[in-house]
Computed example of a mutant assay.
Amino acid sequence: MITKEEVFSIEIAVGSKANNVFITPIAGRVIGLLIYHNKGRELVANAGLKADDGTYISKMQHIENYRSRECCYFNGCKPVDFQTQGKTYTLEISCEEPVADKPFRGQLILIYEDTRFNTCENA
């Protein structure tokens, strides 16, 4: 099976508590989101994905809800269901405390419909 996914870089500078990352994904149906970052589980942060009309695709919530759940690819992501339609989206990220030591860096991964496995045995 061909994996169709898209990766966007995320960053919050040292001393900052938040950042908005604007993305314009390829056209298609997104069925899952993942966020990987360099700060580990001690980071207290929230993330949410908002459409260009201001509605949330995924409401602000603890960033750990976007982690891999250590199971087959599709079942391991944050489930969503939306058509990108060439629109611009905003990934909002906010931390309780300013980022210290080194910048927060990560990736938002959009998983498109044709990557869904029928069962975990096919993974």
Rank of each mutant, 00 (worst) to 15 (best):
V30R: 08
G76R: 00
I2S: 13
C71A: 11
Y73H: 08
F22P: 00
A18W: 04
I23K: 00
E42R: 02
G54P: 09
K17R: 08
G32V: 04
E6D: 11
D114C: 03
G28Y: 05
S68F: 08
K17S: 12
T55P: 00
V80Q: 13
F82T: 07
E113V: 03
N65K: 14
V14M: 06
H37T: 04
L49F: 12
I2M: 09
Y112E: 14
V99L: 10
Y89V: 01
K87L: 00
K102N: 01
G106H: 04
N75W: 11
A13V: 07
F74A: 13
M1W: 07
D52F: 00
Y89C: 03
E6N: 12
A123R: 12
T115N: 12
F82D: 07
L43P: 15
T90M: 02
I12C: 05
K39M: 12
R41G: 13
N65C: 06
I35V: 09
L108V: 05
C71I: 13
A47Y: 01
K4N: 14
P25I: 06
K39G: 00
E5W: 06
F82C: 04
G15W: 02
Q85N: 14
T84W: 07
I109A: 12
G40T: 03
C95S: 14
K102M: 01
R29Y: 06
Y66N: 12
E5N: 15
A13T: 09
N122W: 14
I35F: 06
L110H: 00
R105Q: 15
Q61L: 06
E121N: 13
K87T: 00
Y66S: 10
L43N: 09
D114S: 10
E121Y: 03
K39C: 01
L91N: 11
K17C: 06
Q85S: 12
Y66K: 02
G76K: 02
K4F: 15
A123G: 15
K87A: 03
L108I: 07
A51R: 06
R116S: 14
N75V: 01
K39H: 10
L110Y: 01
D53G: 01
N46I: 08
P25V: 05
Q107Y: 06
G106W: 04
Q61H: 11
N118H: 11
G106A: 04
K4L: 15
Q83C: 03
S9N: 10
G28I: 02
K4T: 15
Y89T: 00
I57M: 01
I31M: 09
P103E: 05
A123D: 15
C77W: 04
E113T: 06
I111P: 10
A18H: 08
T55D: 01
D52V: 01
I57R: 04
A100Q: 13
T115D: 15
G32R: 07
F74S: 12
P79A: 08
I57D: 09
I31E: 10
P79K: 13
Q61Y: 06
E121Q: 06
N118C: 09
C95M: 03
G86K: 04
R67A: 05
V80K: 11
A13N: 14
N122K: 10
N75A: 15
A27I: 11
T90Q: 07
G106C: 06
Q83T: 08
E96K: 13
K50G: 00
I26R: 12
